[in-house]
Simulated scan of single mutants.
Amino acid sequence: MEYKDYYKVLGLDRSASQADIKRSYRKLARKYHPDVSKEADADERFKELGEAYEVLRDPEKRGAYDQLGANWDSGQDFRPPPDWAEGFEFHGGGFTGADTAGFSDFFESLFGGGFGAGPRHSGGGQFSRRGEDTYSRVSIDLEDAYRGCTRTITLRHSELGPDGRPLLRDRTLNVTIPKGIRQGQQIRLAGQGGAGLGQGAAGDLYLEVQYRPHSLYRAEGRDVYLDLPVAPWEAALGASIKVPTPGGTVDLKIPSGSGSGGKLRLKGRGIPGSPPGDLYAVIQVTVPRADSATAQALYREMQEKLDYNPRAKLGV
């Protein structure tokens, strides 16, 4: 996926004010509008301009985009870090009115999927209005979902400064992570969203939960998976072994004749809930290295005494 330098698209540097962005977009949009432009690439350029303007005219999207840094070149291969927008607070309402259909994969990877696209709320009355709901992402450890916990998080939001450029401000909150929360679910913090107008109540803050990558486990819904290394003799003969789980170590029986890829279910050992998920130990038969004379002798003995062709099903 190619990195899009939205400032370069609009012919601006990163210090441009919001007025500069609007002025440059209008000028270039007139030049490349498909109905009037004679340029061969007018359609592509016009769409590219619209995408850049969609991001840079919105202080929140611009602030989040700027967090990626200035060390990327247009066209450079790019993959957004999985936590690139963590802690960045967006107001509801989604995109700012433009038709985003056909925007690049780069745009979708950053702002697609409905992130920050909650409904806007309005109160009754000319001088009172409920504050907007805000949205952010928070990463937790898988173990936090098993036990529940309290975390202190710092959220960053963008607003226009007196010079017309986005200004980032931070705030710190204590957040209760409920036991059993799944990846993708939201935690609602009542009254922690945008301020209301007049007598209007403040909006709510919604935190979308993501699990941090884990060295042992991966989650799918409420189920958790563990790649379980098993010695050849354990797989062939069967064994009772110790297995780690996020809830503690358990004993697990390996049936004789097990092979790599087989799944052993530990009922109720997944993410807590009603009902709880399950934990699946996925067998991975590992082969000891022949890095000693003894090991080499054992392998040669197996080669001579075992009638075994691992490619028999291939017909060779």
Rank of each mutant, 00 (worst) to 15 (best):
G259E: 12
F115R: 12
G261D: 06
L142Q: 03
D41F: 05
A236I: 02
G198M: 06
Y65G: 05
G102I: 12
K313D: 15
D13M: 10
R62K: 12
P59S: 09
E51Y: 09
G184A: 06
R269N: 12
S128Y: 04
A145D: 01
E39L: 03
Y217A: 04
R218N: 08
V243I: 06
A195H: 10
G257R: 01
L205R: 14
P244T: 07
K263G: 00
A145G: 07
D5T: 03
A202T: 11
L237I: 02
R182L: 15
L12F: 00
Y6R: 00
L28N: 01
E44W: 05
T134K: 08
E143S: 15
L12T: 08
G180M: 07
Q186K: 11
P272G: 10
S37L: 00
T286I: 13
L155H: 10
D41S: 08
P244F: 01
G11V: 08
E132D: 14
P213E: 03
S17K: 12
G102T: 13
A236P: 04
A29W: 06
G87A: 14
R120E: 12
I187G: 07
L155V: 13
G221F: 12
G203Q: 02
G148V: 12
R265P: 04
G196D: 00
D20M: 05
D77I: 07
G102Y: 10
R222A: 13
K263S: 05
G69A: 02
L12K: 08
S292C: 00
N309K: 05
F111A: 09
Y6K: 03
T134F: 04
R62S: 04
K179L: 01
L197V: 14
P246V: 00
G277Q: 09
E108D: 14
K61N: 09
S122F: 13
V316K: 11
F95N: 13
Q76I: 05
G164E: 04
K313Q: 15
K242Y: 09
T150R: 05
S260G: 12
D291S: 09
E51I: 06
Y32N: 02
K263V: 06
G277N: 08
P119T: 11
R30P: 00
L110M: 08
S122R: 15
E39M: 02
A293D: 11
G112R: 11
P244W: 02
P166G: 03
T150P: 01
R120S: 10
L10D: 05
Q67P: 01
G148N: 01
G270L: 08
P34H: 03
A231C: 02
K22E: 14
R79H: 07
Y299C: 03
R171C: 14
G196H: 03
K31Q: 15
G257M: 01
L12I: 12
V316S: 05
R169M: 12
P81R: 15
D77R: 12
S139I: 02
H214F: 04
R218T: 15
V55Y: 08
P178W: 09
L197I: 14
L216E: 11
